[in-house]
Design a protein around this nucleic acid. Structure first.
Length: 258
DNA sequence: ATGGTGGCTGGGCCA
């Protein structure tokens, strides 16, 4: 079973790339972020034609998340509503796929340390922790998406360039640690313990991709039973190349049969 | 070089 996550930076603009990628890679589950569309505009039929079910939680111009699955898509939940105060934006959708409770998450960017949007980011991360804490113990879980946090200094191209910036602050990393402390592991880092320059995002601006100026901010956090099944993990850098790419590459994990 | 590019829109915001 292959589970992937991809921030597509507009599903409307990226649909040809996404459908081609599904045909090439044939993942079992694909979590999308930044669809930037309403539910009414979500092109579900494009995925049905390829043998997938799809669920989307969108708001329009910004944000928007989806899960596409060919191993079942049940008990879909939008937002944080089951655990208390909901978000006012469309940044998390959760469903049961192939025996795993899978969330597709788009964590707020934060803009600047101390900015209202940064406080919102920390609030959001805490709401995710609270939500995960309410899951029944032992639920096979994957939280996949764009976390907008580089877990370690080596997850950005040059930490000196990030002095005082978002994505690397102690508060953001502590909030990420709290999410992991609910029992989740960054299986990509576990599989590549000593390799650097394994990025998932390169800004459109300034030719950052070609300059190697990337960040590892997209990942799949897995509960122990899922983490124990991991067969391979990789970033599909090729998807960042070519015509009209997203600024993020897909991250994939392969799981052995349960 | 406090820029750059891309996508939403229909001027300016967001990343």
């Amino acid at each position: 079973m292959i589970v992937a996550t991809w921030n597509v930076a507009s599903l409307k603009a990226r649909l040809p790339r996404v459908t081609q990628w599904l045909e090439d890679v044939k993942p079992d589950v694909l979590c999308l972020q930044e669809t930037k569309m309403t539910d009414a505009n979500f092109p579900a039929m494009a995925f049905v034609e390829l043998g997938y079910e799809a669920a989307h939680f969108g708001q329009g111009q910004w944000n928007g998340v989806a899960i596409i699955s060919r191993v079942g898509l049940d008990s879909v939940e939008n937002n944080f509503e089951s655990s208390g105060e909901p978000d006012h934006e469309a940044r998390i959708i959760t469903a049961d796929c192939g025996g795993i409770r899978i969330s597709s998450v788009y964590v707020p960017n934060g803009r600047e340390v101390g900015h209202d949007h940064y406080k919102y980011k920390l609030w959001w991360l805490n709401r995710l922790t609270e939500t995960l804490q309410k899951n029944p113990k032992g639920t096979p879980t994957i939280v996949a998406g764009d976390f907008n946090i580089a877990p370690e200094d080596r997850d950005v191209w040059d930490i000196k360039e990030f002095a005082g910036a978002t994505h690397v602050s102690d508060a953001e990393r502590s909030a990420l640690d709290a999410i992991k402390a609910t029992g989740l592991t960054d299986v990509f880092r576990d599989a590549h313990p000593s390799q650097d320059k394994l990025y998932t995002f390169w800004d459109f601006r300034g030719g950052d991709f070609h300059k190697g100026k990337g960040m590892r901010i997209d990942y799949l956090l897995c509960s122990p039973d899922v983490a124990n099944r991991v067969d391979f993990t990789l970033v599909d850098r090729n998807a960042r190349k070519g015509e009209s790419p997203s600024d993020h590459a897909p991250v994939m994990i392969g799981l052995k049969d349960a």
